[in-house]
């Protein structure tokens, strides 16, 4: 079933279509939430709220080709709202970023899995050392694969600015990784 039909069925109230759409996009939405909140449980709750928003606003996405940018836009707005609320009312406990990366890969050897976890931890920490705008550009461009035009529209920035910032943000990320693991960081993170 292609996305256009799936969306149409969702809009018509087909519960199975909605379930399929949730299953297809949940990891992506969770990934976005994780990038913003860095806490597994919080990201999970936030993802659920994002899907409720998506469900309420399904009529707002007429064009299936633009579904992904639309989804990312809703997810981003929800995350920003959540962070604003959290700033006003901080959570009862802080959870270290390490804990947020307990991702399961049962088919890998323990050493490989540990290495992968370490690599992810380093990149996540480096990602959060970037400025907010650079982090968002990496999230939207390199993580979610949105087009530069779409990112410019989303962030309300000129296309040229997004282009140059995207390039700078990547370099900053690479340098931040090197700062964390040393100049030979390529081997450690490869």
């Amino acid at each position: 079933m292609d996305l256009a039909n799936l969306l149409e069925s969702c809009r018509a109230g087909d519960e199975l279509a909605w379930e399929m759409l949730v299953r297809q996009t949940q990891s992506r939405v969770y990934g976005i939430a994780m990038t913003y909140v860095r806490d597994r449980d919080e990201a999970r709750d936030l993802s659920q709220d994002i899907f409720v928003r998506v469900y309420r606003n399904l009529d707002g996405c007429k064009d299936a080709d633009r579904f992904l940018p639309w989804l990312v836009r809703i997810a981003r707005n929800a995350c920003i709202d959540h962070l604003r609320r959290r700033k006003a009312r901080p959570p009862a406990r802080d959870i270290p970023a390490d804990e947020a990366l307990r991702l399961v890969a049962p088919d890998e050897a323990p050493d490989e899995e540990m290495e992968r976890q370490a690599r992810r931890r380093v990149v996540e920490t480096a990602l959060h050392s970037l400025s907010e705008i650079n982090r968002e550009i990496i999230l939207l461009k390199d993580m979610q694969g949105l087009a530069l035009e779409e990112i410019a529209r989303l962030l309300n920035l000129p296309l040229g600015t997004v282009k140059s910032r995207s390039s700078r943000a990547r370099l900053e990320l690479a340098k931040a990784v090197q700062d964390l693991v040393g100049p030979a960081g390529a081997e450690a993170t490869a």
């Binding site: 990934g31 990149v123 979610q144 990547r170 370099l171 490869a190």
Partner: peptide
């Protein structure tokens, strides 16, 4: 070195896009 780090970091960033739930 920077090029290698960048390449590796971007690959990891793409992995982070869809964590398991």
């Amino acid at each position: 070195d920077l090029a290698l780090t960048l390449e590796s970091a971007l690959a990891t960033v793409r992995e982070l896009a869809e964590p398991e739930l």
